[in-house]
């Protein structure tokens, strides 16, 4: 009977300690983890929006020997945003291959102006140099277009088709041959000589 008030006091004390700890922990959490951007509605949970991390990407360049595309892997920092990642990957493509047997497929002064995703289709908007400074030829044109399409479909999750625009507009072709009026799927059939050790596109 005498012990009852003591028990109550104990419970009250424990409750206070727990409340204190929770409150302290909450403050600590809020200080360590950056809060949400004013525009985003995503709750500030630690699992959201990881900082850009280094990842391995696969780039497709022109192989002078076989007239096909060949892959080259490199590490680069990718974030969670599609547009930003596209820009990173395209700039790596423009920078060109490391292997001396491969050649670049995109005119060096071309720029990616924008990128957005519509379902499984990725729309890429390039500056006019992609078209005006293209060296032409069926082979050259096919390699340019499919190095872009195959590379992005492989590295951007959930993309199975790519539509190329020039200065915001739909174009018939880049250099007079390949039909760009519709989004293109990655192509492996015309590149029969692609080496088999590379992953499927």
């Amino acid at each position: 009977m005498r012990k009852r008030p003591l028990q109550i006091a104990f419970v009250v004390l424990w409750t206070a300690v727990v409340i204190l700890l929770v409150g302290f922990g909450w403050r600590l959490l809020r200080e360590l983890v950056p809060g949400p951007e004013p525009t985003t509605v995503v709750p500030p949970l630690p699992s959201v929006a990881p900082p850009p991390s280094e990842q391995e990407i696969t780039l497709y360049f022109a192989d002078g020997e076989t007239l096909a595309l060949r892959s080259e892997k490199r590490r680069t920092r990718l974030g969670s945003e599609t547009a930003g990642n596209c820009a990173t990957i395209i700039s790596e493509l423009i920078r060109g291959p490391r292997s001396p047997t491969l050649s670049s497929t995109i005119p060096s002064d071309a720029q990616l102006l924008g990128a957005y995703q519509l379902g499984d289709t990725l729309v890429l908007d390039f500056s006019r140099e992609l078209q005006t400074n293209h060296s032409g030829g069926s082979a050259g044109e096919l390699l340019t277009v499919y190095s872009i399409v195959n590379t992005l479909a492989e590295n951007i999750h959930g993309i199975s088709r790519v539509q190329i625009l020039v200065e915001g507009n739909e174009v018939e072709t880049l250099a007079g041959h390949l039909d760009l009026r519709e989004p293109l799927s990655p192509n492996t059939t015309w590149m029969t000589d692609m080496s088999s050790e590379q992953p499927k596109v």
Binding site: G64, L67, S135
Partner: peptide
């Protein structure tokens, strides 16, 4: 009828599509 072009100047030959 076309003539071809490739970034690698070593590439030669004829193709039909």
């Amino acid at each position: 009828i076309h003539t071809n072009s490739h970034a690698s100047t070593a590439v030669t030959g004829f193709e039909a599509y």
